[in-house]
Design a protein around this nucleic acid. Structure first.
Lengths: 220, 220
DNA sequence: TATTATAGAACGAATGTTCATTCTAGAAAT
DNA sequence: ATTTCTAGAATGAACATTCGTTCTATAATA
């Protein structure tokens, strides 16, 4: 059901895709240096003090890009958040593509997804914070909630496929997905909040053994 | 380590408690009708459109309490959020007290906690949203993050005790807590986001069987 | 009991600030 | 030479908060 990530496409192809309803009209993400500076500064500020506590003058100061340029590139303040959202979910989609190719088994895929989430959390906490905590509906009314974003549904699809294939025992797929990803997400939230002080990688093996044990089919 | 909830106490007793450092100086929560109207309206607005999209005039309109009265009772806008936070965590503490008394086993306690979270989600989604999603650090800089709030640490303590008692197999307590509560919290988020359309209660048994299976000690 | 004093609560118009956005003009790029 | 980009001052609306006042109810006084 899920199409693979669109690669670089021409304008004509893009238009074509827009007409067929099942492909999200995500344009190719090519950012100028100024755009990147703005997005970097905004991500950091949004994560540190929150979207609503971040003013455009703050972003101007932090990014060293002028007000006029920011509005030229992003239209308005929500445009910045929107661009960040698309950047991050796009990157995530790409990473999920790689995982789908690199791992055949459901167990391998799910473990790799958890590893990916841990890695993003450690390497760029602000990115993970933006994905998890940003109340997108508060400043991105146009976007669907993060839970129903492409990467999230993709993660659930992997689990559902695992049940079909008999790799996961028969169980409500929603519950199965929650059992697999829920504990990992919980740990990563605790890590972001500073409750967990060790790098998440140190917890991965023990977490995975327990999570997967409760779900894999007996006759594996 | 954890003291039980303070019952109604006299002023003298309260002062005494304040001097001993290990009891939080939470005053008895007695709210006037006006205060309750404000808190009800604010909770609904905060949950519907977010704290920063809610103006004081909005709260005045919704609660039918005047600007002046609101400032008289709550000091400033963060005071409203703060009062909500204390109300909700206080109620939660009380419910956890009841659970601790009503259930002896760790399994029973954890299951009851999940049931409680589900029940709050169904009965008052706004309350659960405020607890989960409210980026408290953005508008309640004085409060610790929700993860390290009293009810959350309490929930972890139950799990840690279960390991000591041998009811849960030997495993990192942080991971154990994530395995128990993580999936439930995940489901409840999906329910709040409208992804799950059935009442959570219908998922409880299947969820619990799987969660607990991965954690209970072999020699139960 | 009748009158006055006091204090807390309620009110909402007025204030001053912040902030997103616009505007005008000039610099680069194509 | 036309379009794209950059710049930052100017604008105006929205907002949290303040303040002077009025209401209500209980307490003090006579």
């Amino acid at each position: 059901m899920q199409k693979s990530r669109p690669k670089a496409i021409t304008a004509a192809e893009f238009k074509l895709q827009k007409d067929s309803a099942d492909i999200a009209p995500v344009p190719v993400l090519e950012r100028s240096a100024a755009q990147r500076k703005v997005l970097d500064a905004a991500l950091k500020l949004f994560s540190d003090v929150g979207y609503f506590n971040t003013s455009i003058p703050d972003i101007v100061r932090a990014s060293k890009v002028s007000t006029g340029s920011i509005y030229h590139h992003f239209g308005d303040k929500t445009g910045i958040a929107s661009a960040l959202f698309e950047q991050i979910t796009g990157d995530l989609q790409a990473a999920l593509d790689d995982i789908e190719i690199a791992h055949i088994t459901t167990g391998g895929r799910c473990r790799a997804i958890i590893e990916l989430m841990f890695e993003i959390t450690e390497r760029s906490p602000a990115t993970m914070e933006f994905m998890l905590y940003a109340k997108h509906k508060e400043f991105l009314p146009a976007h669907a909630p993060i839970c129903s974003s492409a990467p999230m549904t993709r993660m659930r699809d992997f689990v559902a496929l695992g049940i079909e294939r008999g790799e996961i025992r028969v169980i409500d797929p929603t519950i199965a997905a929650a059992l697999i990803y829920g504990p990992a997400i919980r740990l990563l939230q605790l890590r972001l909040d500073g409750i967990i002080e060790r790098p998440l990688f140190e917890l991965l093996d023990e977490l995975w053994d327990s999570s997967w044990r409760s779900l894999r089919a007996k006759a594996g």
